[in-house]
Design a protein around this nucleic acid. Structure first.
Lengths: 214, 214, 214, 214
DNA sequence: GATGAATGAGATTTCATTCAT
DNA sequence: AATGAATGAAATCTCATTCAT
């Protein structure tokens, strides 16, 4: 929606609007199909059928099956990055920012599990989606900067490698999402809340019981 | 190698030995090819060529391309689990055990990057490898038990969810391996050593600087 | 031809008509190829080439090579059964009906030897064409009912097993068709006419010279 | 057995006897497998497995899968022709000879249904078994000569085409065998007896009730 | 925009046959 | 004689993509 305002609209008539709707229809269908069957085993015909259009139409909006996946990733990851940026720019202390980032990712699961499934399973580790490399990196960088900020503020330990730490945080998130995606980890509302707490708790406070805390 | 002594040898002749060698040849070739091109884009012919055998022979030893991947996973993961078990059964305190587990996984990267590439990219998140589900879970369980042991010994904080914590630890490991696999994270000897330290450091000590430590 | 008027036409445009034409093109090509090389030794590519289309198109209309054969059988056998029914329902005496049925089968050879070749060689005795079983049986039943009618009318001997007799009649026909198909029996116009006569003559009158006839 | 005496026996030792046994073992297994799955869908490995030998051994005794089928046909058809010849040379009248021939073929079904299945389904109509052509023809010729003898003796009607008539007789037999093979016709002892009677009855006496007979 | 017929490269898998042991 | 590992031609079928309508 907000997105739409950016896109070139040839005419404010129904034609263009209808066309854009179809495009979104196809993208949404693709997410469902990719989530269900995986990218490689999904057929272009499956996506078209799920969207209720002829499969030829898909090539009106996208140049290939790969581009559909890339678009799914790009358009959604951009939204995520925007929300990341909002957290980063907030006035919170570093640890609360970290919690904010964690919440953004984990709650996306509740909102759109299919989308997360696709992101986690298909995009994260496939080497052939060119665009994704930089964009994903940008997510890590936000986490890294928040950690560095915490170190600069004296809240986080300065001796830790902030870059590696950002990978640890992100890895924790992605693994738990994967657990939910694969159905190997319960994912009710309560569990999501607990996961948020536990990740921040472990990553910030560590597993070890400090003498004072005891 | 160690395997060989365990394996049933149908006949003490060279035939069986030769056959087993070929099987291993194919499996090793498959790992290289899957690492290079990904499972779905690898052709059976590529594997055969890499192994220096006719592609038909592959079907003498395996019933399908899928079974090759499954076998790669199963046979190697089993080895990993055995080494995990050794660490778990050692007399070390919980945090050192955790370090031991971390080392096992991260150093495998140095020993056999292709294998890790395949495990991380193809197996970890593909829902269609039946056997894998249980076996992977068994890895998590070891980590979880080590954490629970730490909690029981009073070293680790008891209020943390040990199961989620094990996913966090494993996710950290896998993400950094992924970083190496994708070439997005430097992976020299020094970096591997630092990653080991950082993971244990973060997970055990947390990011936050405790008042006393300061 | 007659068929066309019955078939459901999805749209009154040329598209559907063109598609149906292609389908028939493929079926006709398949008959020629199967007749020439036999079903098992015919390649899907041969059929496509004979039809002048890409082999992929065959799978647009049929789900497998087997289904092509099944369709050839089903659609043609149905026509035959309709002509059988017409004879059965006519007002002729039983022996003339029998002659009618014989003529239908034997003259098909002259009209479409390839089709008969396929029917005789590939369909009649292959156990894996599911649909065929019932339909073939229906052909026998017509013959049997005509014989039973003849018995009821007192023209045919009542003590004969009508079912077995129908198999005898049909076997006579099929064997002579086979002889033509295999080139072991001459098949000119005259021979076909003589075969018609001889079959009816033998089956109705018997080989034995009756005293009176002598 | 009787056969064996004709074959060249390299030495009267066990080696040769054992070898010949294996050959027969393979042939018998082939008949069972061909009957069960059809020639084209039977694998050489199936035959070997059924025979309990390695599939390589098959090529010790036969040059190809085709040759196995050809051998099955040749060796068994020869036996049949010998029995046909015995009937032909007997002193019986033509109609009884005809009955004799019918009995030979139909009773083989009871003795060895698998063999008949293979003969009927695979050999009779496949154009690629070279040798068979002449041999099968020889069967027809016996029938034809018996009919001609009947005509010469004045028992059978002279105006009938003896050659076509022989095809009719043979077709009747084969069709009923096919009915048994395909399970579309009951095949108990009684049914076999009735089939014998009916075939001779129809073919000799005809379906039509003669005035006197009535 | 929309359809779906048509294409054809390409992938997996099968299996008869060979041959070293 | 006997085995079964090894070969590789060949076949079916899939499916992304194009394009005429």
């Amino acid at each position: 929606m907000t997105d739409r305002s950016i896109v070139h609209e040839p005419a404010p008539g129904e034609r263009a609007a209808g066309a854009e709707e179809k495009r979104q229809l196809i993208l949404a269908a693709a997410v469902r199909v990719f989530a269900r069957r995986g990218f490689h085993t999904s057929r272009v015909g499956d996506i078209a059928e799920e969207a209720g259009v002829a499969h030829g139409l898909l090539y009106h909006y996208f140049s290939s099956k790969d581009e559909v996946l890339e678009t799914v990733f790009r358009e959604n990851w951009r939204q995520l990055l925007e929300r990341f940026a909002a957290v980063e720019e907030s006035a919170e202390p570093a640890d609360l920012k970290l919690l904010g980032l964690v919440k953004i990712l984990l709650r996306t699961w509740r909102n759109d599990p299919d989308l997360v499934t696709v992101m986690v399973r298909e995009v994260g580790r496939s080497p052939h989606l060119a665009s994704q490399v930089d964009d994903i990196g940008r997510g890590f960088e936000v986490i890294q900067r928040v950690i560095e900020q915490g170190q600069a503020e004296g809240v986080f330990r300065a001796e830790l490698d902030a870059r590696l730490a950002s990978w640890i945080v992100y890895g924790s998130l992605e693994e738990i999402l994967t657990g939910w995606v694969m159905g190997r980890l319960p994912d009710g509302d309560e569990e999501v809340a607990r996961a948020e707490r536990t990740i921040v708790d472990v990553v910030c406070g560590g597993l070890v019981r400090t003498t004072l805390a005891a």
